[in-house]
Design a protein around this nucleic acid. Sequence first.
DNA 1: CTTTTAAACGGACCTCGGTCCGGATCGTAA
DNA 2: TTACGATCCGGACCGAGGTCCGTTTAAAAG
Lengths: 229, 229
Amino acid sequence: MFPVLYAVFMSSALPPFPKPEESISEPRLLEVRSFTDEPCLRADAARNRAKLLEAAARLIAEHGVAGVTMEAVAAAAEVGKGTVFRRFGDRTGLLMALLDHSAQTLQADFLGGPPPLGPGAPPVERLRAFGVAVLYRSAEQLDLQLAAQPEPTRRFAHSALQALRTHVMVLLRQILPDADCELLSQTLMAYLDPALINHLTRQCGMPMERLEAGWVDLVARVTRTPSPC
Amino acid sequence: MFPVLYAVFMSSALPPFPKPEESISEPRLLEVRSFTDEPCLRADAARNRAKLLEAAARLIAEHGVAGVTMEAVAAAAEVGKGTVFRRFGDRTGLLMALLDHSAQTLQADFLGGPPPLGPGAPPVERLRAFGVAVLYRSAEQLDLQLAAQPEPTRRFAHSALQALRTHVMVLLRQILPDADCELLSQTLMAYLDPALINHLTRQCGMPMERLEAGWVDLVARVTRTPSPC
DNA sequence: CTTTTAAACGGACCTCGGTCCGGATCGTAA
DNA sequence: TTACGATCCGGACCGAGGTCCGTTTAAAAG
């Protein structure tokens, strides 16, 4: 159901666009790993984990994210409450596990997929495509993304977010070798925060096209490149 | 204790730097209002409100923000639990009320204080000063700022944050009349998010000087102005 | 000063996230 | 097959945020 451990071999084909800064090491073999589960589980544990994820997904479909109560999930999966917490840590852990599959797909796309998201396109173009992809993916799963947001002190520590930000940083380093790409990548990622997307689209009524244009403009400004007409 | 309703009359003195874009209307009389309380309270209500804020502040000083339990605050203020919730809505409301005084001071500074924060300096300079001021103020009250962060769906709706963002937007409009300053201001504000500051300084170990430099650089990129050496 | 009413009060009560520990179960090694 | 230890299970339990509603009280009207 939600198993999978993608292993993605990056384009054996050479990138068509030779890059000026070749020195930046970009690993050639990248593994897309799950962000949530530990390496190996006992048979019953694995079975219960699957049952819990399935139950949670069903509850979301029926009653929305708000209906996903730890006790309800446990009951729906015919499992004790403690089991849910042992497996997923806390509520956000469970919700993030539900997002894991989509997160892995996205990561596979920009790590090893076709351009402009994947390698092969020039970094600025990849950056643009990345933002747009994340934007629409978050918009699709907005409720779940919002509910899965951990408390402020852990918001940036989460590994799935880190992976996205690292990718942005790698791209930025190719474009701006002398800038503080660590900070700039945080800024760019902040624009893609589901909470912000939610605010702008649902509370301010902005259409997604405007957010998309805003991303393209932001990338142009941050990278000091001319904005594409 | 935490009363006050600042009324700030903006510089009767003319700004020393004449601005090219004079058309943008910047109000001359601005009132700095509290973000939390309703206009008028009954005597007992006002008294209890003060007692609650004092009790909360004392609890923070003694046991840290984590020790600020609604029941504990109510008990320390010798007041019923329901009273706390009726006055402040929820826990974050109470914590934000504690931050209100500092928020008003900041607002007064950038609305009517001396340059470069207040009116009189060129917009870009004011923007730089604004970010630095917010940065250090948030760093001082980090724990409280983090705890006062509402759930994701309300994070951007809060009026104190809106006021700061609006100011950034006004400045941006003076610098970039043709840009989507609404979105750009969101991006800039995101850099000043207490949760991000917390992550970068405490979890990544960055010094504040780096964050400060990052802000200056970001402003330069976003406004497409040369970075000040 | 009395009446009246809208507002405030207080604490019992509910829900839900999270913890804990005695007992059951799995996997392995003998 | 049996024995054993590590892992997992389950649900009672706890704390804290938030709600509700009968009672009290400030303060305006008569």
